[in-house]
Design a protein around this nucleic acid. Structure first.
Lengths: 164, 164
DNA sequence: GGTGAAAACGTTACGAG
DNA sequence: CTCGTAACGTTTTCACC
């Protein structure tokens, strides 16, 4: 089996489990829990970041607090699965600020998006910009998020706090 | 219009834009960019965390590096929309380590999940545990993620690095 | 990987606007 | 009330074992 990243041991795993909950945990606190010295923890974190096992360190912002209280799940179906058109759409999604997540998937839909908006009008305008101008889009189906039950980012963890 | 969180000014907005990209940016660097002193930036960050405009500070872990290279989008339809059964299902999703995200939505499906797994067998076992035991689940439809085009967490930003 | 010193960083008190 | 400056305590970093 091909190993994508450099090898990860159990110390690394335990450190990752902690920092993905909270990357502001001090090395001293982590060291206590995993049974290493703070310096060893720091060295490992540095390596994990360099080898991109940790790809980013981010603050998670409450969307309601910044005026984007609504979320949508959008399933987009394309007219033709031409690679160049797919790539163009992917690029557009990456650049569009309303699009939080974009997955290229198998199944009835081609793309599934998570989109945030200020309100319905704002979302409506997003669909015009993103979909109606694109002749390669056959259709899209919107689900309005009533409750963000769980919003995590990779790995088996439960968020410590609610997002709404 | 009801304001959910305390007021946010343009300094806060610019600080949030920076830390959601990278919360390891030093106050000094942020201060330079927004035109405040480092101490003022720290005070604002502290306030933003206390009032839960910033709900968490997390390290984003590359799922491939930790042996969960596959992602799925699952649409779950319930038999009856009874509040107690919904809450039980939500609770189960919160606790299940494979479930990264869970949204309760309007539309043809009741829930939309983002699930990670080691491989297909691992995913298959997840569906048994989570769905087949639950008599209130009418059905589910799985889309396999071929490309995580964009994986962000709230607010208009593009990830600086690719996740695949 | 551990230890300890040095540097960097975050935190707090204070005075000013 | 919030800023900036400066002293203070903490955390990270690095050389060495």
């Amino acid at each position: 089996m091909a190993q994508v990243a450099a090898s990860i041991d159990n110390f690394d795993r335990r450190i990752l489990e902690i920092v993905q909950h909270s990357n502001r945990t001090t090395s001293e606190q982590i060291a206590e829990q995993v049974g290493l010295s703070p310096a060893a923890v720091q060295r490992r974190l540095k390596r994990l970041r360099e080898q991109r096992t940790i790809v980013a360190d981010v603050a998670v912002v409450n969307p309601k607090a910044i005026g984007r209280p609504m979320s949508f799940v959008v399933q987009v179906t394309m007219e033709r699965e031409r690679a160049d058109l797919m790539d163009a759409f992917k690029k557009e999604m990456k650049l569009h600020p309303a699009v939080q997540q974009c997955y290229y998937v198998t199944g009835s839909a081609d793309f599934i998006l998570i989109v945030t908006a200020k309100d319905m009008e704002d979302y409506d305008q997003f669909t015009r910009e993103a979909f109606f101008d694109n002749t390669n889009i056959r259709g899209f189906q919107t689900s309005v998020v009533m409750d963000s039950v769980k919003v995590g980012l990779f790995m088996p963890v439960v968020e410590e706090g609610e997002l709404s």
